[in-house]
Simulated assay, not measured.
Amino acid sequence: MRVLVVGATGFVGGRLVESLRSAGHEVVAFSRSASRSSFPDDVEIFEGDLADPASLEGLCDGIDAAYYLIHSLTAKNFADLDRTYARRFRERASAAGVDRVVYLSGISGDERNLSPHLASRREVESVLEAGSFDLTVLRAAIIIGAGSASFRIVDDLTDRLPVMTVPKWVSTPCQPIGIDDAVAYLIGVLDVEETRGGIYDIGAPTVWSYKSLLKLTAEEKGKRVLIVPVPVMSPGLSSHWLRLTTDVQYAIARPLAESMRNPVTVDPERDLQSVVPIEQTSVEVAVQQALADG
């Protein structure tokens, strides 16, 4: 199968390209920063920018399936950009006759009071759904791995604050997933016809809170932390607090922090594990691997 990865140089994209190759697919890697040195010789490179329509000529030609992994969190108007980019991709994929598209989105619990970040993910889902291809949406919470911005925030906090006065979102339930499992699910849906047109949640086998995830990460590094939630800290204030406690770019950390108020756990009725079973990695092991690779 000839597969296009849009966002191939990102945290998920780079690993997905390698796993698709290993699975025997012909891979086209699209990114603004795609270069020959970034990928093995048998990966086709397509350097382009969704902000520049002229650079997209022929992007989807001959493509059977595509993964759409674009999120524009570094821009203040990221929702506008994500909407525009998704439309441009949809138009080209539809015109070229792409059969399937897989979009990596975000879990957002009960779908009420969504943060701007999660609301934008939902909008992109709707934009892509209007294409002539079959869309499969996988929704994830924190993806644990070296290079993950969300996990980097957790890692930085446990490095710098032995005593944390933290926003109340530390008690929010979440269901992280290791990067290897996320990639396994992304590839697995291609072989399961039932997943065409479906929306699925992906996560590790157990539910955590951000507080318990912080404690686990600290323990894996041989540290102990004292966490004291402060109920009056708003999402806006908590994002400024992150500016002082993590090296993650503030433009990325802010929307991620605002999203942490939403419970992000797998809905049993949408659990991809029941349709595409894999050997799941525990959160404990995923954290160990991320720290070893970091």
Rank of each mutant, 00 (worst) to 15 (best):
G10E: 03
G13R: 03
V17L: 02
E18A: 15
R21P: 09
S35T: 15
S35G: 14
I45T: 11
E47Y: 04
S55F: 10
L56F: 13
E57M: 00
L59Y: 02
D61H: 02
H71Q: 13
D80Q: 11
R90V: 13
R90W: 14
E91V: 02
E91A: 06
V102R: 06
D110E: 12
L114H: 10
L118V: 13
A119D: 14
E123H: 07
S126L: 09
V127G: 01
L128Y: 13
E129A: 11
G131V: 02
A141F: 08
I143A: 01
A149K: 04
T158M: 00
R160C: 07
P162M: 03
T165W: 14
T165N: 10
S171R: 14
P176A: 05
I179N: 02
A182K: 03
A184L: 03
L190W: 11
L190E: 11
D191T: 14
G197H: 07
G197K: 01
Y200T: 07
P205I: 05
S212P: 09
E220A: 13
I227S: 08
V232K: 00
G236Q: 08
S238R: 00
S239C: 04
W241D: 00
L244R: 09
L244I: 10
T246I: 08
I252S: 01
A253W: 11
P255S: 09
N262S: 15
Q273M: 06
V275M: 06
I278E: 08
V283F: 11
V285D: 12
Q288S: 08
Q289R: 15
A290S: 13
